[in-house]
């Protein structure tokens, strides 16, 4: 298989924060053009996993590749768009949405056309002239989604992007993501909302106890629901475990 068939690969990826193990020798591969949901309980390492992939945090060991190349800053910048949880931004920063998004643009003419299209998709073009402290949580979330798309990235990583969105905006976002995915973009979507996963996911990557399991929605979700109801190690490591622990792609 050509190395470009994988948008992202990790080999023995190990991460600890302040001495606490978060990811333990994780091996995974995400197909180019795939649409993967990353799920898991709070604190299971979902955000840590994507931040390690993007080089935003130091790793203890292992390797990350993006389109077959090491995840250097240049490689990440060329290929990945990221929509973070909005809480990390200083909302009192005196900057407008337009100025913030312009920071992503190198070719402003081309960039502005695409920004306009993305905002239109999310029905939010009226936000451009507002300062970021004048945005609601949902509006800020939409701005961050558009910012993640500005560079027309091959891979889009979204970290719980729906947490502040209303139902209509949920639908608009999924239509946008489906459209992008149909155009060959790889989508990685972190969520702990089971309804979202149930409705939209085909492939799921599940984090639990510092390890990763991948599979199709039905097989993973049955485990996931179980674990939510009764968090027991036997459910994940027992004999009925999905055919793979810590490294296997059940549908790939």
């Amino acid at each position: 298989m050509d190395k470009k068939n994988f948008a992202i690969e990790t080999t023995n990826l190990t991460v600890s924060i302040n001495g606490n193990s978060i990811l333990n020798s994780v091996n995974l591969s995400i197909d180019t053009g795939g649409f993967v949901f990353v799920v898991g309980p709070n604190g299971s390492g979902k955000s840590t996993l994507v931040k390690a992939i993007m080089g935003l945090i130091d790793i203890d060991g292992g390797e990350v590749k993006v389109f077959g190349e090491k995840n250097t800053q240049k490689n990440i910048a060329s290929n990945i768009g990221y929509v973070p949880q909005y809480v990390g931004l200083d909302r009192e920063f005196p900057i407008t949405v337009e100025e913030m998004i312009n920071l992503e643009c190198e070719d402003k003419g081309k960039c502005h056309k695409e920004i306009g299209e993305h905002f239109e998709y999310l029905d939010s073009h009226y936000l451009l002239k507002r300062k970021i402290n004048q945005l609601s949580g949902g509006e800020m979330q939409k701005v961050l989604i558009v910012r993640g798309l500005v560079k027309n990235p091959e891979i889009l990583i979204l970290d719980e992007p729906t947490s502040n969105l209303d139902t209509a905006s949920h639908r608009d976002l999924y239509l946008l993501l489906e459209n992008l995915n149909e155009r060959g973009k790889t989508i990685i979507f972190i969520s702990h909302d089971l309804n979202v996963v149930n409705k939209f996911a085909s492939k799921v990557l599940y984090l639990y106890e510092h390890e990763v399991v991948t599979g199709d929605r039905e097989s993973i979700l049955s485990q996931y629901r179980d674990l939510f109801d009764n968090r027991s190690d036997s459910n994940i490591h027992g004999s009925n475990h999905i055919n793979y622990k810590n490294h296997k792609n059940t549908d790939g």
Partner: peptide, 14 residues
Amino acid sequence: LYTTLDSEAAYLRN
């Protein structure tokens, strides 16, 4: 400006 506003986003823009 980008480093001051959002260092993670700045990193991701090289």
